[in-house]
Computed example of a mutant assay.
Amino acid sequence: MAGKLYLVPTPIGNLKDITLRALEVLESVDIIAAEDTRQSLKLLNHFNIKKILISYHKFNELGKSEDIIRQVKEGKNIAIISDAGTPGISDPGSVIVSKCIEQNIEFVVLPGATAITTALVYSGLDTTKFIFRGFLPRENKERKPIIDDLINRSETLIFYEAPHRLLSTLEFLYENIGNRKISMCRELTKLYEEIIRLTLEQAIEYYKQNSPRGEYVLVIEGKSKEAIDKDERAKWDSLTIEEHIQKYMDDGINKKDAMKLVAKDRNLPKSEIYKHSLKL
C-alpha cells in the first residue's frame, strides 16, 4: 500500500504561527524532507518532534524528487518543508508536485504561512488582484524583460528581495516603472518586523541613509487607470483620425466597427468620426 506525500508550510518567523494540522502531520510522517536540515531541526526541536530528516533543496530537487516518490510508493509517509513559508512558493516543491501528478501519486498541500498575503494586506494597496514574481534576477539584462511585461499591468506587484540587493533593485524599479507607491515589509512576524509605506523615490533616499537589514517583501502599486488611459491616448496622437480608422481596417475590422473603436479610443462623438471616415 502506497504512502502519502504532504507539503507542509512552516512559520515565516514567529513559531506560534504553525498550525495544529501541520504539527499533527509532522508528528505522524515517517520522514521529513527539509530545505535546510539544520534550520528545520530548530523548529522540530521546539515542538519536540523527532523524525528522520533528509535534505531536499533546489540543488538536488530533481533527483531527490524521484527518490521521495519511490519511498512513497513503497508505503512511506513523507512531509516536505522549506526553511520558512509554503513549499513550492519561491522554495522547492513545485517539481515534486508535477511528478506526483504525472505518476498519479496522492499528495496533500496544507494551508499555512506565506509572506505574500501578509505583506499584501499590510501594504494598504489593491488586494483584489496582484502579481507575485518572487526574486528578480540579479542582472538588469535578465530582469528588464520581466519588468517590461509588468509595466502596464494594473495589478499590485509583489517581489521578494535580500538586503544586499535592495537598493539596486529599488533604483532599477524606479528607472523602469516610475515613482509608484511601495510598501517595504521587513522581517514579517519576527521581533523586528517593520512596514514602511513610501514612494519608490522616497524609498531609495531612505535606504541610502539606512542600511537594509533582513528579508524584504516589496509591494508596489499597479499602473493606475488614469496612466493607462493617458498612454492609450498617446498612441493615437501621431495618427490622424483617418489613419486611425484605416489602421483598424487593415487589421481586418470592418469600417463601421473601426469607427466605433476610434470614437472610444479618442473619446469623441461617433458623428465626428463619421465625418472623417467619408474621406477614406
Rank of each mutant, 00 (worst) to 15 (best):
N152I: 13
T127V: 15
F159T: 08
L191A: 06
A113V: 02
K144E: 15
I105S: 03
P163T: 04
E205Y: 07
T156E: 08
I147Y: 08
E171H: 02
I151D: 04
K99F: 04
T189P: 11
L173V: 12
Y160P: 05
Y174H: 12
G134I: 11
I182E: 02
E142W: 13
V121D: 00
R143P: 08
G124F: 05
F172K: 02
C185E: 01
K99Q: 13
M184D: 00
G134V: 13
K190R: 09
L200E: 11
E106C: 02
L200G: 06
G124Y: 08
D148V: 06
F130A: 07
R165C: 02
H164Y: 13
T156K: 04
L166D: 03
E201N: 14
E155Q: 15
T117R: 00
Q103N: 15
I204T: 10
E106L: 11
A115Y: 00
I177N: 01
I105D: 03
E155D: 15
T127I: 15
I158F: 03
V121Q: 06
E102N: 14
D126R: 09
I147A: 05
S168F: 01
A119E: 03
D148A: 08
F132L: 08
T128E: 15
A115S: 12
E171F: 00
A203G: 10
I158T: 02
T127E: 07
D148F: 09
E102S: 13
E155V: 07
L150S: 13
C100P: 10
L191W: 03
L150P: 13
S98K: 14
Y122W: 04
A115N: 00
R180T: 05
L167F: 06
F172I: 02
T117F: 08
Y192Q: 13
D148G: 12
T128Y: 12
D148C: 07
E102T: 12
T127A: 08
R197N: 13
N152M: 14
P145D: 12
N176C: 03
I195A: 00
I151Y: 11
T117H: 00
Y207V: 13
E171L: 10
T118C: 10
R197G: 01
I147E: 08
I177L: 09
L120G: 06
V121S: 10
E106P: 07
I196G: 01
F135W: 12
R165D: 04
F107W: 07
L170M: 09
E194H: 08
Y174K: 09
R197M: 06
T169A: 05
N152P: 04
A113G: 01
L173F: 10
L157T: 02
L198E: 13
I147R: 01
L198Q: 12
A115W: 00
G124A: 04
Y122T: 01
N152V: 09
I147W: 10
S123Y: 01
I195M: 05
L173S: 12
R143I: 07
L173P: 09
E201V: 03
E106S: 14
P145Q: 12
T169Y: 05
L166G: 00
E194Y: 04
E139N: 14
R180S: 04
